[in-house]
Structure formats: C-alpha cells, structure tokens
C-alpha cells in the first residue's frame, strides 16, 4: 500500500473520530462541550496538515513505503491471522474459561508460527499457564473465569 494511501486511510479514521466528538459535543451543555470541541477542531487541522505533509513527501520522492527491501517485507497473512487468532482468544475466554483458552491459544499460535517443536510447544504452553495461575490466581487472588474447569476449582 502506498505511503500516501496509508496516511489518507489514517486521516479518514481520525476525521471520523473527530467528527463523532464534534457532533456529540454540539448537543451538550457548553461547559461540557468546550474542551472536546477545541480538541476535535485541532484534530481536523492536524489531520489535514499530516495529509499535506505526506503529499509533499511523495511529490519530493521522499515518501517511504512500508517495506523497501525484500528481506524487510512484512508477512501480512501471518500478521492478519495472528491478530484474528488473538481476537478469537479474547472472545473465548469468558465462554470456555481462561485456563482452557490460554493453552489452546498458545499451542495453536506456536504451531502456526512454527516457533518450537511439538513437545516444547506443549511444555511451554502448559508451564506458562501454570505460571499464570500461580501468579494471578494464587498470589494476586484474581477472580479469573474458569469456564469449563469451574467444577474442578470449586471449593
């Protein structure tokens, strides 16, 4: 994706965000609306400046694309899959329980990333989950949802 396009897409995000705050503030009492209105206006000005700056850089030929050299290339499918995997992991925790979701997430991620051999993947995932249990549940007394493991942890 081109340098300018990336900046334009980010500008669309910031302008959209700014517009939400600006319009919502319009219907608020002036005391509450004052500060967000000023900041939203500032966001519009700075966004426009950022796009102009990007445009000038491209015209001067100094716009830097994300990846210049082949060895620097970002593995987009890997990044997207990993982010999706993390989103699913976060979604599943309240449903199946933290200590079920975590080892599964670690095993799938390590296997997908080819980080370690099968035995080491299992070992690291289980040991890390146990470490988290002792740190956050046993030591910090955090009420972590156990989900499917609930019957085993009922006292």
């Amino acid at each position: 994706m081109g340098y300018l396009v990336q900046h334009v897409l980010f500008a669309v995000f910031t302008v959209g965000l700014g517009l939400y705050f600006f319009i919502k503030a319009f219907f608020m009492p002036s005391t509450a609306a004052h500060f967000p209105t000023i900041i939203a206006s500032l966001v519009f000005i700075l966004t426009a400046s950022m796009v102009v700056e990007a445009l000038r850089k491209v015209r001067r030929g100094s716009g830097v694309p994300i990846s210049k050299a082949p060895e620097e290339k970002i593995l987009v499918p890997r990044v997207v899959s990993y982010v999706a995997l993390t989103a699913v992991y976060i979604f599943l925790i309240p449903r199946i329980g933290y200590f079920v979701a975590t080892p599964i997430f670690m095993i799938i991620s390590y296997s997908y990333l080819r980080a370690l051999g099968t035995f080491k993947i299992l070992l690291v995932s289980i040991c890390f989950s146990i470490f988290i249990y002792f740190l956050f549940v046993w030591f910090l007394k955090l009420p972590i949802p156990m989900g499917l493991l609930e019957p085993f942890f009922e006292s």
């Binding site: 997430f105 670690m106 390590y110 990333l113 690291v124 988290i132 955090l142």
Partner: peptide, 13 residues
C-alpha cells in the same frame, strides 16, 4: 515468536 505469544497472554490477563 515464543516471546510474542507470551506477551499477548500477559497483556490479556
């Protein structure tokens, strides 16, 4: 890669 997954798990908890 090993660090990355561990970081995500720690961030979530």
């Amino acid at each position: 890669k090993v660090l990355s997954v561990a970081i995500v798990v720690l961030c979530v908890i």
